[in-house]
């Protein structure tokens, strides 16, 4: 929806950490490396990249070595190891063989960093997106199949740590919801 708000005003609505992250990419002296990493997807949700997910925090080129900083989603997320390996592989394919992947814990990852396009991609993939609310806040949850909000929670813990299990009471489809944290 175009409300005539200038884009600079809208950026202020982002969580400050997310704004800084996008700024790091925009100001980067090695944009080709960020671009190369756009091919790295979440192995469990192959429609969104680690950039869109908010996991990719920084990319630096220091004396021929690439330093990639990522932040874990959930503490025990088994996909993190795969993402780190995929980062190394993607950069190798782009011609950079010397890559170090650094994990940074702070600031703690939040689903509010997941970009709008990625939230939409999640919905199309069949996962109800977390929205931009924080943990504990109630956002309306809609069935990703039929769009109905007539849904109920089956379990707070779904197929992976980041998802909860729901069922639609209109079209009867069970679906995953990306939990806001």
């Amino acid at each position: 929806m175009n409300t005539g708000v200038r884009s600079t005003d809208r950026i202020a609505l982002l969580p400050v950490e997310e704004h800084q992250r996008r700024q790091r990419r925009a100001d980067s002296t090695c944009p080709q490396l960020w671009d190369a990493l756009d091919s790295v997807k979440d192995p469990e949700i192959p429609v969104i990249s680690i950039w869109e997910l908010g996991v990719l925090q920084d990319v630096e080129l220091r004396e021929g070595a690439v330093i990639v900083t990522i932040t874990p989603t959930y503490s025990g997320c088994p996909a993190m190891g795969v993402m780190a390996e995929d980062v190394v592989i993607a950069l190798r394919e782009a011609g950079y063989s010397n890559t170090e992947v650094v994990t940074r814990l702070a600031p703690a990852w939040s689903t509010s960093w997941i970009m709008d396009e990625a939230q939409e991609a999640l919905r199309e993939y069949g996962i109800a997106p977390p929205g931009r609310s924080c943990a504990g806040e109630h956002a309306e949850i809609c069935c990703p199949q039929c769009g109905s909000s007539n849904v109920h929670s089956v379990s707070e813990f779904g197929s992976t740590a980041c998802k909860a299990l729901y069922k639609c009471d209109d079209c009867s489809e069970p679906f995953d919801r990306f939990k806001p944290i």
């Binding site: 959930y74 025990g76 088994p78 813990f157 740590a161």
Partner: peptide, 11 residues
């Protein structure tokens, strides 16, 4: 899932 969260913390 909860077990994984704790193993992650331990790590």
């Amino acid at each position: 899932n909860v077990a994984l969260d704790f193993i992650g913390r331990a790590r």
